[in-house]
Simulated assay, not measured.
Amino acid sequence: MPAEPAAAAQEPGLRARKKEQTRRMLRESAARLFAARGFAGTTIADIAAAANVSERTFFRYFDSKEALLLPDGIELFGWIERELAARPDGEEPLQAVCAALLAAAKPFSAGSLTALTHPLEGTEALVVGRLVQAFSGFEERLTALVERRLPSGTPDRDLHAAVLACAALSAVRAVLRTQRGRRAAGTAQPTAADLLPRALALLSQIGTPAT
Rank of each mutant, 00 (worst) to 15 (best):
L14Y: 02
R15N: 01
A16Q: 13
K19N: 12
E20Y: 01
E20M: 02
E20W: 03
Q21W: 06
Q21N: 05
T22W: 03
R23V: 00
L26P: 07
R27W: 06
E28D: 12
S29G: 14
A36H: 11
R37K: 14
G38K: 01
A40T: 01
A45Q: 10
A48D: 11
A49G: 15
N52H: 15
V53C: 15
E55Q: 13
E55Y: 02
T57V: 14
F58W: 11
F62D: 07
A67D: 08
L69P: 01
D72Y: 01
G73T: 13
E75N: 09
L76D: 08
G78S: 12
E81D: 14
E81A: 07
E81W: 03
A85P: 00
G90W: 07
G90T: 02
P93V: 02
L94N: 02
Q95E: 13
A99K: 04
A99S: 09
A100F: 10
P107Q: 08
A110N: 13
L113H: 05
L113K: 03
T114E: 13
T114F: 12
L116W: 10
L116C: 08
L120T: 02
E121T: 04
E121L: 00
G122D: 07
V128Y: 05
V128P: 02
V132W: 12
Q133V: 07
